[in-house]
């Protein structure tokens, strides 16, 4: 066991880890930040996506020990300072971009990474960017609308083609 320290959602946090402790386990069990979910074991589903040094990373496919000193942002860090829903979170609620909520943290974090890189993505770019995030409930239609809305674009009508 060794102690790993990271800055998580702006706060310095530490937990004891084994070599095999994944970032997802460090967050969920070590820090009790259970907003980050684990939905698969082959690095496909993206429910566990968090930002590491600003980049989207699958936290189930990264060792905590490899990330000593990293800046990590999880879904718990996405609300406004006053506790109200942040821009992306609000768009997901406004456009019904979630149902069971399990994939949602990963979707929100991937959206944050996308919009940081590409503030006004096209529908095509959104759909392509989210290929590493699986949702079983929504059919993605309203997730795409939510992402477009979060980027400040009009989502009155997503073209049929």
């Amino acid at each position: 066991m060794s102690k790993v320290t990271m800055t998580v959602n702006g706060r310095k946090m530490a937990a004891e880890v084994e070599g095999r402790t994944l970032l997802s386990g460090f967050l969920r069990e070590g820090l009790e930040l259970t907003g980050t979910h684990v939905g698969c074991d082959t690095s496909q589903c993206g429910a566990c996506v968090v930002l590491v040094n600003g980049q989207a990373v699958k936290s189930c496919t990264a060792f905590a020990a490899d990330l000593e000193g990293a800046e990590v942002t999880t879904v718990e860090g996405m609300a406004n300072p006053d506790g109200s829903l942040g821009n992306i979170q609000q768009a997901f609620q406004d456009y019904h971009g979630l149902q069971c909520g399990y994939c949602t943290p990963g979707m929100v974090m991937s959206t944050a990474a996308l919009l940081a890189d590409n503030p006004k993505p096209t529908e095509e770019e959104v759909r392509h960017y989210l290929e590493g995030n699986i949702c079983r409930c929504t059919g993605y239609q309203n997730i795409v609308r939510a992402v477009m809305a979060a980027s400040g674009q009009d989502v009155g009508a997503l073209a049929a083609e």
């Binding site: 996405m78 609620q93 979630l98 399990y102």
Partner: peptide
């Protein structure tokens, strides 16, 4: 949605 979007959902795990 509020709890799910802020990481405050409470799932069995």
């Amino acid at each position: 949605d509020t709890r799910f979007l802020t990481g405050n959902g409470k799932y069995t795990d």
